[in-house]
């Protein structure tokens, strides 16, 4: 197990390097820093001086890979690549266009993101599994058929509409909850409720349909017949045998996104004004703050790889057949 994790961590390094190189290529090779400066400054103020100043301000005035003017190791370190990309491996992301330290922003904003994403995940999982089990219990009846049709209808609605409808009806028309905002502590609960509710509802369609497929696949297997032949009731068969096997793909699917919960949801956070990493990212994209976008790409990849490793470990926990070596 230990050797396995160690090996996986070693494998993660080339992948992170790959991510790093890819983003570097996207941001600096396809477009020169001059292009970026021009875009940032807007058409009106473009003068050679302004561009140069912008580049110096943002540290983009260095060569890409090799600084021939520097001496010693600075030839490699005093470059855009080293300053902007290589330093990410130690989680030093530098400053955003607003002058704030990105790493610090990430630390502050993780909390609010988690406050939304975690309840959405847990409640969503429970709701979806319940619906899926209900449909499976009533399989091959009209209840199941219309359940599936309802799922398809629910998943055919864009997530944006769930949010807009939730904000309009629940917050604006009926005044039940605040339309957006965030506060810490118990006071913040009323701000969290609406985004969580909306996100859970938006996920019901695809979630319960997927889980239903998983459970249906399990229920067709031979061991289910054995369980019935023992004289178990359908409910016991469902909860003890089918659920236990079906939870293997479900749980591992959940584990892979667990670390990514820190990143929050772009859309939800932006609509509901949650000061989390999601809205941070979306603001950065809209403001074309390349430093922040780059940092978030790296953080996201890092968390995804952590998720992959956690998935493998969780497999060995829930499925006795899996041994990590």
């Amino acid at each position: 197990m230990f050797a396995y994790i160690l090996r996986r961590l070693l494998y993660a390094v080339p992948i992170l390097i790959g991510v790093n190189l890819l983003t570097f290529a996207l941001f600096f090779v396809v477009n020169t820093p001059d292009d970026m400066a021009r875009l940032q400054l807007g058409a009106k103020h473009v003068t050679a001086d302004a561009i140069e100043r912008w580049k110096v301000e943002h540290g983009y005035d260095k060569p890409l890979f090799l600084n021939t003017q520097a001496t010693g190791s600075a030839q490699l370190t005093d470059t855009i690549f080293f300053r902007h990309s290589a330093t990410m491996f130690v989680f030093r992301f530098g400053k955003g266009d607003d002058g704030r330290d990105i790493a610090n922003e990430i630390r502050i904003r993780m909390g609010p993101s988690l406050a939304i994403a975690l309840p959405v995940l847990v409640i969503g999982l429970m709701v979806n599994i319940t619906f899926a089990l209900l449909m499976v219990f009533f399989r091959a009846t009209y209840l199941d058929l219309w359940g599936v049709v309802l799922c398809v209808i629910l998943m055919s609605i864009s997530g944006l509409f769930y949010i807009i409808a939730g904000q309009y009806f629940i917050a604006k028309l009926w005044n039940l909850l605040p339309i957006s905002g965030f506060a810490g502590g118990i006071n913040g609960l009323r701000f969290i409720l609406l985004p969580v509710l909306v996100s859970v509802v938006a996920g019901i369609g695809s979630g319960s349909r997927w889980y239903r497929t998983i459970f249906l696949e399990e229920i067709g297997k031979d061991y289910v017949r054995t369980a019935r032949a023992k004289g178990l009731s359908e409910i016991r068969v469902l909860f003890r045998h089918v659920l236990k096997n079906g939870m293997i793909p479900i749980l591992t699917g959940v584990v892979v996104v667990l670390p990514l919960l820190f990143m929050g949801s772009l859309i939800t956070e932006s609509f509901f004004g949650i000061p989390g990493l999601g809205s941070y990212t979306i603001d950065a994209i809209q403001a074309q703050d390349f430093a922040v976008v780059r940092a978030m790409v790296f953080l996201g990849s890092f968390l995804y790889i952590v998720g992959l490793i956690l998935t493998d470990i969780s497999y060995s926990w829930v499925d006795p057949r899996v041994r990590l070596r």
Binding site: I15, G18, V19, L22, T23, L260, M263, L266, T281, V293, M296, V297, G300, S301, Y304, I305, L308
Partner: peptide
């Protein structure tokens, strides 16, 4: 590598 980068980003 491609998968590990969050899609929207």
């Amino acid at each position: 590598v491609l998968n590990s980068i969050p899609g929207v980003l």
